[in-house]
Design a protein around this nucleic acid. Structure first.
Length: 157
DNA sequence: GCCAACGTTGGC
DNA sequence: GCCAACGTTGGC
């Protein structure tokens, strides 16, 4: 059963254009340092799951692309790199604390902005819109995925 | 830069 | 195990 996710990325770090420019339009989703988000990647994601590529911490936050999960989970190499901002001294290579998956962008969309998402009744329960939500990876219900696809005026994927 | 909300840490 | 202090996220 295919599932759906929304994954936040700061465009200054890795924008949808950056991802599209990468080999096979695929990027390793480095830097997740929250257990709940990690557990989604570790326990629930499957290759082929749908992903809404979201830009956060920027002038116009919103959904900017449709992507898919492109690998099974594996250790995030940045946790072992002392020069990386994501370095975690407490994580050991034989017992990695942080995982990631590869994400492949399938197509760029217009920026479906946060205010637009909030204005849509069909998306009232979208997890990422809940007050105080800070999770960088959140599940998306099939009806929300469909509603967003419709707003983007598009194929379902 | 502000600040609400939330997660993590560490003393007890 | 509790919880205060602290750090981070992320919209505005």
């Amino acid at each position: 059963m295919t599932k759906y996710w929304l994954m936040k990325s700061e465009p200054e770090e890795c924008s949808v254009d950056d991802a599209l420019a990468a080999k096979n339009s695929t990027v390793p989703w480095v830097g997740v340092r929250n257990y709940q988000a990690r557990n989604f990647m570790r326990d629930a994601m499957r290759v082929g799951d749908g992903v809404l590529f979201y830009h956060s911490s920027c002038a116009e936050p919103g959904i900017v692309g449709i992507a898919q999960v492109a690998s099974t989970p594996y250790p995030d190499p940045t946790q072992f790199d002392p020069r990386s901002p994501y370095y975690d001294a407490k994580s050991k290579p034989d017992e990695p604390r942080w995982l990631l998956v590869d994400v492949q962008v399938l197509r760029k969309t217009r920026n479906l902005t946060l205010p637009e998402l909030r204005a849509n009744d069909a998306l009232a329960d979208l997890v990422v819109l809940r007050k105080g939500n800070r999770l960088s990876i959140t599940p998306v219900e099939p009806q929300h995925w469909r509603a967003i696809s419709k707003l983007l005026g598009n194929p379902e994927r």
